[in-house]
């Protein structure tokens, strides 16, 4: 993998984050954060607790509005769009804490993931006629692909809220993937998982990138995984970018070692 990424370092970035600053009641959460995510890559955001990793994801997905800065996805200005319209440009995400629709089945959770791709009108819904019937079946077929990929078949019709933790994490990944995103933001998808589940999740992330053609921006505390699967790592500390580069560059970076990798945090598996 290392060879592939050195070959093409000059591709156009899919996501560009420029000078993003975010404050909460005068307290800076992000200061002048800038980085880019190249198409087809896995980029990891790391940093100690409270460094601002989730905040930057929230700025990208529209939960927070930065005080200043610019965010472009595929050349489109994201900050001008409300959160629900950003999905249509090819953005989807998972949350640090499970954020599933508890009352819906796994299948329906994934179907909601495709909401922005399904277009029939309310009248068609009310009558369950015409486009509604055809579209439901067609999208169901796409959702089944995701279910197969993530091994969710046994849980298909179960309410998401009653599933084991590890499965819920997978369902959330599935919901994000069902949206057919260009860029998928994953906020600690392996948090709280055992070794086997973590390895499966790492495999899924690699496959999402290589087979499903999505670009991945990953937040993860598990350094082993991050070093293994990332094409690029961005290190955040106290709300600003401390360093960014290839995994080998990051693990050799003196600032990073001093601020982060050298401490106990390096092996700490986050919450």
């Amino acid at each position: 993998m290392t060879q592939i990424k050195t070959m093409a370092t000059k591709t156009t970035p899919l996501l560009e984050v420029k000078g993003v600053t975010l404050t909460f009641k005068g307290i800076a959460a992000l200061t002048d954060v800038g980085f880019s995510v190249e198409k087809g890559r896995i980029v990891s955001l790391i940093g100690p607790n409270g460094a601002g990793k989730t905040s930057i994801l929230n700025c990208i997905s529209g939960r927070y509005t930065p005080d200043s800065g610019e965010i472009y996805l595929d050349g489109q200005d994201m900050l001008r769009l409300p959160a629900h319209k950003r999905t249509g440009l090819g953005l989807s995400r998972t949350f640090q804490n499970i954020a599933l629709f508890k009352g819906l089945s796994v299948l329906d959770n994934l179907m909601v993931g495709r909401h922005h791709l399904i277009h029939y009108g309310l009248l068609s819904s009310i009558l369950y006629h015409g486009r509604a019937v055809a579209d439901e079946a067609a999208h169901r077929r796409r959702v089944e692909d995701v279910i197969d990929f993530l091994g969710l078949s046994p849980y298909r019709h179960q309410a998401a809220g009653h599933l084991p933790y590890g499965v819920q994490k997978r369902v959330e990944l599935g919901r994000a993937l069902a949206a057919e995103p260009k860029l998928i933001l994953l906020d600690e998808p392996m948090a709280g998982m055992n070794l086997e589940e973590t390895e499966d999740m790492a495999r899924y992330i690699l496959d999402i990138c290589e087979e499903w053609g999505a670009t991945v921006l990953l937040i993860e505390h598990d350094m082993g995984v991050v070093m293994d699967i990332s094409d690029k790592i961005v290190v955040l500390d106290f709300g600003s970018v401390l360093a960014q580069g290839r995994p080998d560059e990051i693990s050799a970076n003196q600032d990073v070692i001093a601020a982060y990798l050298g401490t106990e945090d390096a092996t700490f598996i986050g919450r």
Binding site: H84, K102, L104, H115, H116, A179
Partner: peptide, 30 residues
């Protein structure tokens, strides 16, 4: 009418707002 709405995209969007509006928004639900 209500049964039909509940098994189609509009009903799912309603439930998604009830269960986790942040995720609903991410899925593109206005």
């Amino acid at each position: 009418v209500v049964t039909n709405v509940m098994r189609t995209r509009h009903g799912r969007a309603f439930v998604s707002i009830r269960d986790f509006y942040l995720s609903a928004e991410i899925a593109g639900v206005n």
